[in-house]
Design a protein around this nucleic acid. Structure first.
Lengths: 216, 216
DNA sequence: TTGTCAAGAATGAACGTTCGTTTTAAGTTG
DNA sequence: CAACTTAAAACGAACGTTCATTCTTGACAA
């Protein structure tokens, strides 16, 4: 038998995934042809189709990887018992997702393509739903900690705040993909300014009052 | 002459755009074939190609429409001299974008597809850049008003706060597209809670101090 | 160690399909 | 009838995928 080592098989698979990632990040899933992927991976059609049964399978594999990496970043920072302010903690998440300087992790354009593809694939939608549920739970705990410590009014359901915070991170990643610019520090500052706002009808700045009527 | 009235021409064009919008919102630009568009619009190939020279032109027309609608919503609410709190004003924007109950405006899934396509098209990227610049200017004015009134610390550049707020709206729209759920009211509440936070090392809740060190 | 050999891995030309678009002919309207 | 719109068939190009073939690998006999 001329069976090749498992490491070799894994490396080949990764080689294909990496090449495909570059293509997909550059041109999206549908505008990238298999020929493009083959060229970028430096392999022939037959070789690639030994590792992935179809283009769809390749797309799904990459999308699931992206979910894993992004979801992992969101959960990794939620372990703290004494959570830092929202701006800092979101900054940590984003630095994990973007790759801290040296090695690039998830290119924001690829993430946008994955979002778009998720709208068309039931399999991806299910995976994203599960990942999102886990992330949301983790962040509900963070918000709960804020509320228990009296740092945040607790008459707003923690889930709504958690979703808003996750949305802030997603919006930042989207802007990174679309406009390139925007440092993580800018987001940290922006959120810092928002969290330190003073309700307009309450110049004293009491934070746990009901400055503008109860939420609906 | 069998020349048809201008109204008829406009109506036909709109009929095509509407059908294509439904298709694109459902399946994305690339997974939608021209046959799909023709069927949905109830027209033949020859008819459609009389109004749009190519599929790309049709895609661009729809994307530009979406930019116009979303950008318009962001700017429409920025006219106020005495801006409401961020949560409320963002709620207004989103209700404009989503269509206030009755008529649907921009379906969030279509918006996600437009974002993805913008990453591949220089023409769309340019249009989005211009629209984003205008929206950002408008929101810098809003944030400036907050800061001038002492409602928000002014040691954070208004542009960074504006971009963060725009990101909140984009993140909400993304979640609407991906998960369907999430009411605009939830976002208003979430932002209300965030803006009423108390800095952790400053229990008194002074809003214009420097509760956790100056921004970088 | 070296040589042999079969099985697995990789190749790339070719296939059938489907795409966006064009062409041609029939239909419609003032 | 003339001017113009619509329908539908047909086109070339490009796509994802397959398959007959060649190359490479690693166990094993000597």
């Amino acid at each position: 038998m001329a069976r090749v080592s498992q490491e070799h098989l894994d490396a080949r698979r990764r080689q294909i995934l990496d090449g495909a990632r570059r293509c997909f990040a550059r041109n999206g899933f549908h505008a990238t042809s298999m020929q493009d992927v083959l060229r970028e991976a430096g392999l022939s059609a037959g070789a690639v189709y030994r590792y992935f049964r179809s283009k769809d399978e390749l797309v799904a594999a990459i999308a699931l990887e992206v979910f894993e990496e992004v979801g992992g970043a969101f959960e990794a920072v939620s372990r703290s018992e004494d959570p830092p302010p929202p701006g800092r903690i979101l900054g940590e998440v984003l630095r994990l997702v973007l790759g801290d300087g040296e090695e690039e992790r998830v290119p924001p354009p690829l993430l946008v393509q994955v979002w778009a593809e998720t709208l068309r694939s039931a399999e991806l939608a299910e995976a994203l739903d599960k990942g999102y549920a886990r992330v949301r739970e983790a962040w509900v705990r963070i918000v709960g900690a804020y509320q228990r410590r009296g740092l945040m009014r607790d008459d707003v359901p923690a889930d709504q705040v958690a979703r808003t915070l996750i949305g802030v991170a997603q919006g930042f990643l989207l802007q990174r993909a679309l406009f390139g610019a925007g440092d993580v520090t800018d987001l940290e500052n922006g959120l810092l300014a928002l969290t330190s706002m003073r309700p307009p009808d309450d110049p004293a700045g009491r934070a746990d009052g009901a400055p503008e009527g109860p939420p609906v």
